[in-house]
Design a protein around this nucleic acid. Structure first.
Lengths: 353, 353
DNA sequence: CACGTTTGCGCAATCGATAGCATGAATTTT
DNA sequence: AAAATTCATGCTATCGATTGCGCAAACGTG
């Protein structure tokens, strides 16, 4: 049926504006305008071309369009280790929210390791309109590349280091909140299990927690950990469990839920009960940490809001608005589980009396 | 320094072959050939242009290249719910292995839900060279689109339904292996916790396990579950724990590690010990299931090998080789944890005596 | 009925990179 | 020394979609 010389049809050749135009007996520019709803094309012709296009299953070539239009509709995504459930959740939401804005994600990197130069360059090769970095580590190579080429850049869950805006949970506020909670509940010997030594999230959470503990007149928390993995949490938990009961911490704040899960796994294997022998709190609000068997008391990051703001920031800058970089902090939400003893008279936030 | 009329430099304008050519005093085609290492260009000129390109930080526009070249270098990725750690691992490996082949991943969909038409169409709009579907669910819409436009398609962890090749773990062999293991260890009342009712992986694992159990002369396993989530596993575990001890199953095979974790969490909360009161085995080899507190006995999917084969299949078909669709099955590896009683004299595979 | 204005659409250039063909110079061959 | 090659590079069309400009025909008005 479809004649081959028209350039489309069952031959596997894809339809183009040109072949559609030949078939419809109009110019290619008319096809283009008709499909984009240009009012200069008569409603009659527009309908005819639209019908033809959907009949033959025409799909515009975005690559060609972006060549002239200047925007690719692609957002580069650099994501941290997705074995961390927080990043997994972030990834999923990032895809969904991007689709709602008509963007597609070019998955540039996923994992803990550093980003290779060749990988980072693909951001430029594919002319991404913007870049979203979601990783607690410091991918300065990507940041440098984006800056050099004027690609808007937004970081989520990590504060800006050299270039680009950032959206983050207010980690200090979270750390302070958790310190307050533990101190008011009567804990006296506190510990912190920290994540990566160079990650801003871990540092801020740890510092704020320790500062508030000291401000309350208690001894400086002992610091354990040093990497944001389950194994590191497990090791720290084993260390804690091995301490004599009279000097052992009675409250532990972990810089992430992943660490908290490791800590709980270890101390429980060593026969300690949570929270009777030891309170554990975390930060992130990762799904597996909140449910059984952990039921962790934690500060959940508002991922939807964070990504929404991040995309807003990107969109502004993609439109050419020449704004200064900004840092947006959003407050996390306390999720009260059963992993920590609570202050007397503490009212469950989800359960207002 | 950089003169604006040359089209590149600090003005934010990006360098192109044309602007590089003007700057170098040669033709654009010469720049293109020089950068691609065409031997027809003298070594001298080639070196000069290469030096200039790296000096100004030129990056080729892949979009333009693919317009003439016909290939975009993009692989569409459709991935299942990444809160399932198996998919998270798959995602991470998929990115790494794709980069090794010089491909980039266009993240089309991530999650459990169905794929929207507009989302699926982006596969065609961006002229992906191939498509990788990693999901136990049946994204037939994507398959149909790929078939209609001749886009090579490979599925991982799901068997082909209508169109495209597939690479999968040999789920039946795994189910049989686990049934053997439990029966030989003396379990007599077996149960299965299955995943999604329409997913091939869950169905095959369940059927093979049940078939072998019956072949061994034991009663047909009771079937629980019906969705591949932690919550479903937890619910099934609660059901099991609620049964009277003399009729309660003494061995449970879960169609995924995610389910197995849910089952173990539930039965432990109800005071049952694993494996003393109940053996639990899973399938997948997900990282959190293998470590504390689960230490699950499971059949690990060979993800690296699976993805390697999947990409091989894609690559062949992208080169235009007109091969028939094929189904590749790879054997999983038994990982022996502590979640199940073992047959007497069972030799730990990682620990040959 | 003549002239100006809108309406509707085609022509051709453009985006950036690539590839076929052509061209002039340098080199080899007879 | 004239002819035949080889070599290095330039010219130009091409991929597919978009867009500024131009040009008819249809419309309206005086």
């Amino acid at each position: 049926m479809a004649d081959k010389s028209s350039g489309g049809g069952e031959t596997g050749e894809r339809w183009t504006v040109a072949s559609l135009a030949r078939r419809a007996g109009v110019a290619a520019s008319t096809v283009s305008r008709a499909l984009r709803g240009d009012p200069r094309i008569s409603a009659e012709v527009r309908a005819r071309i639209a019908a033809l296009a959907s009949e033959v299953g025409y799909t515009p070539n975005v690559l060609a369009r972006s060549l002239v239009g200047g925007r690719s509709g692609l957002i580069g995504l650099v994501i941290g280790p997705v074995e961390n459930p927080l990043y997994a959740a972030l990834l999923q939401k990032a895809v969904t929210l991007a689709a709602e804005r008509g963007w597609r994600l070019l998955l540039v990197h996923a994992g803990a390791g550093p980003i290779e130069q060749a990988t980072a360059e693909s951001l430029l090769q594919y002319r991404v309109d913007g870049c979203l970095i979601t990783s607690a580590e410091l991918p300065s190579r990507v940041a440098a590349i984006c800056r050099a080429d004027g690609v808007p850049l937004v970081m989520v869950n990590r504060v800006a280091w050299e270039h680009g805006s950032a959206v983050s949970c207010d980690n200090r506020a979270g750390g302070t909140l958790l310190a307050d909670l533990l101190v008011r509940a009567g804990h006296r010997r506190l510990a912190v299990v920290r994540g990566g030594l160079v990650t801003s999230t871990s540092r801020e959470r740890t510092e704020a927690f320790a500062a508030r503990v000291e401000a309350e007149g208690l001894a400086t928390p002992i610091i354990l950990g040093g990497a944001n993995t389950h194994a590191m949490g497990y090791a720290a938990g084993a260390q804690i469990a091995a301490m004599p009961a009279d000097t052992r911490p009675d409250g532990v704040m972990c810089a992430s839920d992943l660490l908290a899960m490791g800590v709980m796994d270890a101390v429980r294997e060593h026969g300690l009960r949570v929270p009777e022998d030891l309170s554990v709190v975390g930060m992130d609000g990762a799904a597996p940490a909140v449910r059984a068997p952990y039921r962790l008391t934690t500060v959940a990051q508002p991922l939807d809001a964070m990504l929404g703001r991040a995309y807003d920031l990107l969109e502004e800058r993609m439109r050419g608005v020449n704004r200064a970089d900004e840092l947006v902090l959003l407050r996390g939400e306390l999720i009260v589980g059963t992993s920590a003893r609570l202050p007397a008279g503490f009212v469950h936030s989800q359960d207002p009396a």
